[in-house]
Design a protein around this nucleic acid. Sequence first.
DNA 1: CTAATTAATCGTAATATTGCAATATAAATA
DNA 2: TATTTATATTGCAATATTACGATTAATTAG
Lengths: 110, 110
Amino acid sequence: MGVTKTQHFTEEQNELAVLAKALGHPARIAIIEHLIKVDSCICGDLVNELPLAQPTVSQHLKELKNAGLIKGNFEGASICYCLNEEGFEKIKSFFSLINTYLENRKDQCC
Amino acid sequence: MGVTKTQHFTEEQNELAVLAKALGHPARIAIIEHLIKVDSCICGDLVNELPLAQPTVSQHLKELKNAGLIKGNFEGASICYCLNEEGFEKIKSFFSLINTYLENRKDQCC
DNA sequence: CTAATTAATCGTAATATTGCAATATAAATA
DNA sequence: TATTTATATTGCAATATTACGATTAATTAG
């Protein structure tokens, strides 16, 4: 029926999925990459940087913010967005687990 | 409208988005976690493990496979699924970039 | 206060995702 | 060969996502 069965999964699994989903769009990858490149950012910048209209960029920023991957504060007339370490920490520990597993994996059955 | 403007982003950005999107569902996170836990897996296992019907699990496996995050081989009557290192490598280098940035970031403007 | 600038929100069309029953396919076994 | 077992595919309903024009809200400059 089209609704994710969130209730049936653990909180950790749902959190990770939310974070990954937020990164699951090239525009949002581009936003993260741009934030790293300029090391602090105004939204207007992004509208020029991305091949998308201003409302669309605003929407993508909102999703990244909701997922906890970026933070935004008013700075004069515009808004300063930057990476939110907290969100990335959670992803980091998940991938650490995977990397440790992959490095120690003895026999790859497939 | 409603179609992601894939053409306007770099191949790397699109690839990362595909990988992240594939992880953007709790069932698929659960599948990855289970594959790590049992260190090789048969799909039937997963149908019992997950709160989803067999066709739904099959679909999620397909998406993980398409994204390059898991591999599957026939093993007798059933199929043996396991992690595909290649896919995770790509994600790893992206997060390395982010971690390096976050660790060296001087002033957090937000 | 008014105009200009910047970014968020609303409304909506186009498309994608999620989930499952029903069915199909493929291999193992009796 | 017929049956069982394991997994994939199809078709469809419910819902979510993507994108953007129009509008609104908030801030700054004059």
